[in-house]
Amino acid sequence: MNRLAKYWAFMRMGYLTYLAYRFQVLMSFVSYLLIIALNYFLWKAVFAKHQVIAGFTMEQMMTYVVIGWSARTFFANRIDRMIGDAVRDGSIAMDLLKPTNFQLYHYFRAFGRAVFMFLFMTLPIIIVASMIFPVSLPSGKLGPYLFPLSVILSFFLHAGISYLTGLVAFFTRNNEGVLRFKQLLVEVFSGVMIPITFFPDWVQKVLFWLPFKYIAYAPLRIYLGMEPLSKVHQGVLLQIMWIVIIYLTGQIVWHYAIKRLEIQGG
């Protein structure tokens, strides 16, 4: 029970941290609406002459854009940057002095942020955007139920990827390059930027073996009811599988990372 209380407390802290940055959150809200607006106009232009592109209709695409970018506010995290900064400025020492699982500490702290974001970004964006742009409700039998679960899994999947990226800082001191590369991979291959059916076939084949598309593309397909029941279950199971694989990898890498840590001073 005490253990749980601990991680609940981390969430609370992550949540409280963001209360201090209300203005930035407001600006971020505006930015997201701008991206959605830009995408709206672009896709409208794209669909001017076509009914279906890469398996998507105009209506589906609009919903995909709004829900996708809103969900992004929820599953985004700064774990990699926080670990990198902490290693560089030495404040990692303070984290190591706490009797907690470093990985779960970061997961739950970020989840607290995600809860904050859900309340003050995701929901408001969906509400405002659906008043301006055409957005449809989740379809299919399972969409309404499985989509929220799937997005929560997206959060933990992405958290794991960021955590591993953060750990690179223990080995190279500066993880900025890896961090940017990871950001690029996630932005491009998670499906938020564009559904992965737009990529050439060989890219899609490669992506099948990587975790990225389970961050956004898979949950959004569930929302849109574009997958048959069996595939929905399979998608959720694959998400869980990747979460476990990445979590365990994190635990193993941590073991080596801690030995490589060098903190300057004195």
Binding site: V46, R180, V188, F198
Partner: peptide
């Protein structure tokens, strides 16, 4: 991260020939 925008437009034109003329 300007590269993301470039990759977007490149991917878009894999399946789309033109944009509103």
């Amino acid at each position: 991260m300007q590269l993301i925008g470039v990759l977007f437009i490149v991917s878009l034109f894999v399946k789309v020939p033109s944009l509103k003329g």
